[in-house]
Design a protein around this nucleic acid. Structure first.
Lengths: 220, 220
DNA sequence: CAGCGCAACTTATGATCAAAATTTGGGGAC
DNA sequence: GTCCCCAAATTTTGATCATAAGTTGCGCTG
């Protein structure tokens, strides 16, 4: 088991701290790291079969990105979101993501649209299947490709930071409610990109963000 | 000399990596770290008299915040901003900071206004004196207090990340042009806060952001 | 329920290994 | 004879680990 983890960790010529970082990031977004869960260095050292230094670096990095929260007493946990934090996150997403959509609409070619359509198809299948992790992954992939298309690395990084913050809560909500009643304004978005209508793309994303965050907020 | 650095570093019961982080962050915003300058671990170890691990952690944190940039060949430098990056930064600032101003306008009391007025007075004196670092510090302090007043920790953190990104370039520009012709919409902002006019506060910040970023853009 | 001690964890150091960059030297072309 | 380019050696820097030292929190005892 530990050998498996160590095996998986030692992939390409990627530094160990990078591997740990990606591992942990995935765990925050799609994995089993729940809000309020403590994250210990030693725990990760054992679980991932890595040394202390890479784990420390990965944790600091995720903390700086808002995925983890440093308590005062040198303890680290996955942040628990309250209503105020969620509303602020919603406002931040509404400030950034529609702008990215506008930029993407001005730059998307047939290839990007095809990729989005493909991802959205997998997303629909995941929903029908009731596959929560699949939904989370494909949904994130969809927005990630969209935001890449915007060619705005800074705003994309900021947006990723926001996703890391509500990721665990979204997963909890999906676990409670299943994959029904999930927002899907992706069809509208793709149509908007096809005709290069930035305003329509922004509206679609606004819808998506508002509905998704509202759903989390409802579940407190 | 090395003792001095070590002396200054060992202040309160603050962890070493936190000390190094603040040191480096100040250097990016107000210090002598120029765009394109390489940042080496061992160099900081010597300069600050700290161990390798704290330095590594601080660098990872700043890198995650966008203050530093990891080149592919495991080397790290202060990012050099091109026109496209600056325009994107401007858009990101315009997406976030006016919203923070609106929130601040709804929450600012006499105490916050007084603090802002005080800082702005010091800022004016620094400009008259031609004190570039003083200007940079007070200007940052002004916006920092404003953004604290907004009570939106996430959006404030994102905004700080943006400031870290253009900080070095702003300092270079000020070094070339002196402290004249600097934007100062702070008076308008304070007035807007006093009468709790969110829209006016947003306009003032928009002006400030647009003018400041335009100035950097002009200097390429 | 206050004080004490134990256990778990974090912080930090320095050593060691690996990789990248820089310098250096030789060979060839003009 | 001078200049340039390529390759080997050196040196600088980064990555990782093992371990020591210091905190924190918790449970136990009185």
């Amino acid at each position: 088991m530990a050998e498996n983890a160590a095996e998986a960790r030692t992939q390409a010529g990627m530094p160990a701290h990078e591997q740990v970082y990606r591992n942990l990031r995935e765990a925050v977004l799609f994995g089993t790291l729940a809000p309020g869960e403590p994250v210990t260095i030693q725990g990760l050292v054992e679980r991932l079969g890595a040394g202390m230094t890479p784990v420390r670096e990965a944790i600091r990095r995720l903390t700086a990105e808002g995925a983890l929260q440093a308590l005062g007493n040198r303890r680290i946990e996955v942040p628990v979101l309250g209503a105020a934090a969620l509303e602020e996150l919603t406002e931040a997403r509404l400030a950034l993501e529609p702008r990215l959509a506008v930029r993407a609409a001005g730059r998307a070619g047939p290839e990007e649209v095809a990729r989005l359509v493909e991802i959205d198809a997998r997303l629909d299948r995941a929903i029908l299947r009731g596959d929560i992790e699949g939904y989370l992954r494909e949904n994130h992939a969809f927005h990630s490709v969209l935001n890449d298309t915007a060619q705005a690395p800074v705003m994309k990084a900021l947006t990723e930071s926001l996703w890391l913050r509500f990721g665990p809560s979204l997963r909890v909500v999906c676990g409670q409610m299943g994959t029904r009643h999930l927002p899907d304004c992706h069809k509208d978005l793709v149509r908007a990109l096809e005709v290069r209508d930035g305003a329509a793309a922004a509206r679609a994303i606004e819808q998506d963000v508002a509905q998704g965050m509202e759903m989390i907020l409802q579940s407190l």
